[in-house]
Amino acid sequence: MKIAVYGANGYQGKLVLAELARRGMEMVLIGRSRERLSAAASQVGVADAEIRIADADCSHALASVDALINCAGPYTVSGQAVARAAITAGCQYVDLSGEQLYVKEFFDDLGPDAERAGVALVPMMTESGAIDDLLAALLAARLQPAEIALAHKNLNTGGLSRGSARSALKTIDFLRTGGLAYEDGKWRTDAPALRKSVTFLGGEDVPVVKFAMPAVVTIPRHVDVQRVQGLLDAETGERVTAAALSEELIEAMPEGPSEEDRRAQRFTIVVDATADDGSSVQATATGNDAYRTPAVMAVEAARRLIADPPKPGVLAPAQAFSPADFLDFLGRNGLTWAIAGWEAR
């Protein structure tokens, strides 16, 4: 089982390398600069790992590779080119995207080619994407939802990585609209917020604003639902959309939060499903380290795609993997999740 990492020298890429090394998996580092890749490999403690040089059109660098993890954001810029390279090479594909429009266009554009190539492409293996998608699938199995609201509350110490900041800069105008909501088979940026506040764990009632959560565009692909919308605690939403970002400021930032700051990060997710008759069911998830968690998710996703390939095509996480089983795996790696009426995990 050989897994390649594109963008391996970036902040998120090195966390993925560290997770591959922790699990004893064979890896290939792919990127534009041998010097930077070598430095990343040494920093992570995998100095003997194989290095291959390629840009986003990296199909020639994927020989004998079983799966590709794309860590090179902003995905809006080059994500599809890397995914198409995986299609050409005939290897499975995972990325850690959180850019809502990118995820929508990924599904719109790449499905038929992936199906013909016989490979699965699974984007958005992040806490802000895959966990929402997996929880929503479990809720829909218990209740026929008319409406699903995805609410997040974040405590992110140490700030963003440069990659996350660049992704925000590329999509800042779209983020300021509140992103896409799904209503009656259509995508809208002008839909009113489904909630003004959300009660998070501990009974804390928190003001929320519309936000471009990526799972808004995947959930309607496998759940029969009328409305889906993403929400973010208002404090974080204001901080993200009001940020005065520029490439010069980003370049002057630290590469990313320190390990100590990452360990202090907290994220809380509430997914509410409501039926036409007003009945509802709720799922919650809490975790820490919003950068290591996606690395763990992406490596496990790649492993599962190789070991037990799903149907080919572009797939939401809940279409590619058993939702409860994948969440239970995350539960052994720091995530606590529960659904009303189920024992907390």
Rank of each mutant, 00 (worst) to 15 (best):
I3D: 09
V5I: 15
V5L: 14
Y6M: 14
Q12G: 10
G13N: 12
V16S: 13
V16H: 12
M25C: 14
V28C: 11
L29A: 15
R32T: 10
A39E: 15
E50L: 13
I51H: 10
D55P: 09
A56K: 08
D57N: 12
S59P: 00
A61R: 00
A61V: 02
L62V: 06
A63H: 05
L68K: 07
I69S: 13
A72R: 14
G73S: 05
Y75F: 15
V77L: 15
S78K: 14
S78R: 11
V82L: 14
I87R: 04
C91I: 01
V94A: 05
S97K: 13
L101H: 07
L101S: 03
L101Q: 09
V103M: 10
K104Y: 05
F107R: 02
D109F: 02
D109M: 04
D109N: 07
L110A: 10
E115H: 03
G118T: 08
L121T: 02
M124N: 14
E127T: 03
G129S: 04
D132V: 07
D133G: 08
D133H: 10
D133R: 06
L143K: 12
A146I: 01
E147N: 10
E147L: 10
E147Q: 12
I148N: 09
L150F: 08
L150Q: 07
L150C: 07
N154C: 03
T157M: 06
G158C: 13
G158W: 14
S161W: 02
S164Q: 12
S167N: 04
S167P: 07
I172Q: 15
D173W: 10
D173L: 11
F174D: 02
G178K: 10
G179W: 11
W187Q: 03
W187E: 00
D190E: 11
D190M: 09
P192N: 03
L194H: 13
L194P: 13
R195T: 03
R195Q: 09
S197E: 04
T199F: 03
V206Y: 12
V208N: 01
V209C: 13
F211C: 13
A215F: 04
I219E: 06
V223P: 00
Q226P: 07
R227S: 11
Q229G: 08
G230V: 08
E235I: 05
T236Y: 11
G237L: 12
E238A: 13
R239M: 15
A244C: 01
L245M: 07
L249F: 08
L249V: 08
I250C: 09
E251I: 06
A252K: 15
M253G: 06
P254S: 10
G256I: 02
P257R: 03
E259H: 05
E260D: 15
R262G: 13
A264Y: 04
Q265M: 15
I269W: 02
D277P: 14
V281S: 06
A283G: 15
A283R: 14
A285R: 00
T286R: 02
Y291S: 06
T293N: 05
P294V: 00
V296A: 06
L305S: 06
P309G: 05
P312E: 07
P312R: 02
L315Y: 04
A316V: 00
F321S: 10
P323S: 09
D328S: 07
T336N: 08
A338W: 01
A344C: 02
R345W: 03
